[in-house]
């Protein structure tokens, strides 16, 4: 006890004190704006999601309890669009991970021209979503679009790629084009692995597959974990891609098969002026994101344990 008390009363060294002061001085703008710009709006938004706020009735805003949240679960549009958004994620995230890891392994080897290949594979993931959607809208055109030319080449009938039946798959294809988002990180993680480690594994009789499974995958696990988390977040927040792919602007609604959850929330807020309800929808998706991120972390930890042992 006395020891502890002594420790607590111990004077801070001048260096420590200057460090403390510098830390709080440097973080002050962050903390101030965190409170004003993020925390306060968040809590306010949470409050609004329990009201019937419509953008104009600030004075007569009434508390409606859990009504907006209950409504979300009764709103078939909301639930169907949520399910659809999940489906998009369930397809694109694992597929992107596979593509990205295979490409990272392939492109971490030293060959002539490998830098250009890396660039080609990475660039689609950084282009503005609006531009990407516009570009793919052109490729999927019914008359003369490249996909229909391909179909015709193999003797099929032209497909309406942007119509009700196919637009979902068109969206998936477009999203997979951006699969290379974490390829540079994965490549540098792979390159960081010491050659001795791989060599000793080879001496122990590991083949290419063994090296990938026991060395490369565990070493790139943190990158892959980050990629999955950002994938979940960006899929659940997907908004511009369906709009631009359908060729409708911001004021219009895309076809049902690509009507994502955030488009629905956006419609509630900006088209129907149901701010309270729209914010309830975004809070629901926030909670889902948190839960999914935690689950991903659990799975990630377990998997990296399994792979390592």
């Amino acid at each position: 006890m006395i020891m502890k008390a002594n420790k607590k009363r111990k004077k801070l060294s001048p260096m420590q004190r200057s460090n403390y002061r510098a830390f709080y001085f440097m973080m002050a703008p962050f903390l101030l704006l965190f409170i004003v710009y993020r925390l306060f709006p968040m809590i306010w938004g949470l409050y609004i999601s329990f009201t019937n706020y419509s953008g104009f009735n600030m004075g007569s805003m009434a508390n409606v309890g859990w009504k907006n949240y209950i409504r979300a679960f009764e709103d078939s549009q909301a639930m169907i669009s949520l399910g659809r958004t999940f489906l998009i994620g369930i397809i694109t995230i694992p597929a992107s991970m596979v593509i990205c890891n295979v490409m990272a392994i392939a492109l971490s080897m030293k060959f002539k021209g490998v830098g250009i290949l890396r660039t080609i594979f990475y660039i689609p993931s950084i282009l503005p979503a609006v531009a990407v959607g516009t570009m793919w809208n052109g490729m999927f055109l019914r008359d003369g679009g490249v996909f229909n030319e391909l179909v015709k080449l193999f003797g099929g009938e032209p497909i309406n790629w942007l119509g009700y039946d196919y637009i979902f798959y068109s969206l998936i294809l477009m999203l997979l084009w951006g699969a290379g988002g974490s390829v540079l990180n994965n490549i540098s993680a792979i390159k960081n692995i010491s050659t001795e480690l791989i060599e000793s594994a080879r001496l122990d009789g590991a083949g290419n597959w063994g090296v990938i499974r026991h060395i490369i995958l565990p070493m790139t696990a943190p990158m892959n974990y980050m990629a999955v988390v950002t994938g979940i977040i960006s899929t659940l927040q997907m908004f511009a891609q369906p709009l631009m792919l359908s060729g409708v602007g911001m004021s219009s609604v895309p076809l049902q098969p690509v009507y994502t959850y955030m488009v629905h929330a956006y419609q509630q807020i900006f088209a129907n002026l149901r701010f309270g309800y729209g914010l309830a929808l975004t809070w629901i998706v926030f909670i889902i994101m948190m839960v999914l991120t935690l689950i991903t972390r659990r799975i990630g930890d377990k998997m990296s344990d399994n792979i390592a042992t």
Binding site: F34, Y37, R38, F40, P41, M42, W44, G45, I48, I233, L236, Q237, M262, A265, Y266, I269, F275, G278, L279, T282, W283, V285, F286, M289, M290, T293
Partner: peptide, 21 residues
């Protein structure tokens, strides 16, 4: 950990109240 948390907040959830503010 605050910084890490903010990463997960959907932009929509804060943007509307920010707009009102």
């Amino acid at each position: 950990s605050l910084v890490l948390c903010i990463m997960m907040i959907p932009t929509f959830a804060t943007q509307i109240p920010q707009y009102i503010l």
